[in-house]
């Protein structure tokens, strides 16, 4: 049971960091940026690149990778997505599919297809109430929690944070009351890209840096964003936590004996489908999100 909690906490940390940004940018710029999940592998690969190129420590390399990804996120929005959203949100969606595939192909061209580990020492895990937690996982949870708390403090307590919430609620009204919405959107895209990149680095610390990282994140992250309500970062964190627990728990449940038959577990290969099933269920039953903010029907 402890093991499920620990694994869920790690998973929730990584999902939240990516989902918050997607929820924010979707709320502010009014389009679903599918390419957002690709900022995770982009950040991780850039971190690896900086570490190898300048012989830096992992921490400095990761910070540079995160900042660079934030900048790329801003540039893509200002040069590309902003023009497409003006045509329609559907055009922007097609554009983000294009960017998503271009990022993957670009990384593959530059770094090759095989996954690579981050330069981390391998340390023994810590036994804890019948479960094992690695030091890396502890670091992942600690960093993610700190950053998420800092983010919400910024969103709720600072002036910029208040402006972001205003733009999300009503961009025209915000513009009319003297908020520089273009500048706020730039801030949002920078922070979102950076947080997704941090999510990628943390995920890579826990596993490896791989090309599939972004694609594998897509369904659970989108599920978390829609479950939590588009434009509600707090909702996305809560939904990511629920999703993480469900993902870890469902593999642990013996459905056969529950239904009075042979021992049957959900095959491990299908764990990726859990996010998808959750997504479909939420879309059909509560498209406005489980907490009731945002979302809309046709």
């Amino acid at each position: 049971m402890f093991q499920v909690l620990i694994d869920s906490a790690v998973r929730a940390s990584e999902l939240s960091l990516v989902a918050i940004g997607l929820s924010l940018t979707w709320g502010v710029a009014k389009f679903a940026n599918i390419a957002h999940v690709q900022y995770a592998p982009l950040g991780a690969y850039l971190a690896l690149l900086f570490v190898n190129m300048f012989a830096l420590g992992l921490v400095v390399g990761a910070i540079m990778g995160i900042l660079a990804t934030g900048l790329i996120g801003v540039l893509l929005y200002r040069a590309f997505f902003r023009r497409l959203v003006r045509a329609s949100s559907a055009t922007a969606l097609i554009g983000s599919l294009a960017i998503s595939i271009v990022i993957t192909a670009g990384i593959q061209t530059a770094a090759g297809p095989s996954p690579r580990p981050l330069p981390l020492p391998i340390l023994p895990g810590i036994a804890f109430g019948g479960a094992i937690i690695t030091r890396t996982q502890l670091i992942v949870i600690a960093i993610a929690t700190t950053v998420i708390i800092m983010f919400f403090a910024g969103l709720m307590l600072t002036k910029v944070g208040r402006s972001i919430r205003c733009v999300m609620a009503n961009a025209d009204l915000a513009e009319a009351s003297g908020i520089d919405t273009a500048r706020i959107k730039t801030h949002v895209f920078f922070v979102s890209g950076g947080m997704a990149a941090l999510g990628g680095v943390l995920l890579a610390m826990d596993t490896t840096v791989s090309l599939e990282m972004g694609t594998v994140l897509l369904l659970p992250v989108v599920a978390a964003v829609i479950m939590g309500g588009v434009g509600s970062p707090l909702g996305s964190v809560a939904a990511a936590a629920i999703l993480a627990v469900v993902e870890n728990l469902i593999l642990d449940i013996d459905f056969g004996s529950l239904l009075g038959g042979e021992t049957t577990y959900v095959p491990l290969n299908y764990s990726a489908a859990i996010g998808f099933v959750a997504l479909i269920l939420v879309m059909l039953l509560k498209p406005q999100g489980i907490f009731g903010f945002g979302g809309r029907r046709a």
């Binding site: 679903a32 369904l219 829609i226 998808f276 997504l279 479909i280 979302g295 809309r296 046709a298």
Partner: peptide
């Protein structure tokens, strides 16, 4: 029936991945 266009797009993407 119940989904706006961009939501439907993501659901179809998810269906294909599944």
């Amino acid at each position: 029936r119940t989904l706006a266009a961009d939501y439907w797009a993501i659901v179809t993407l998810a269906l294909a991945e599944c």
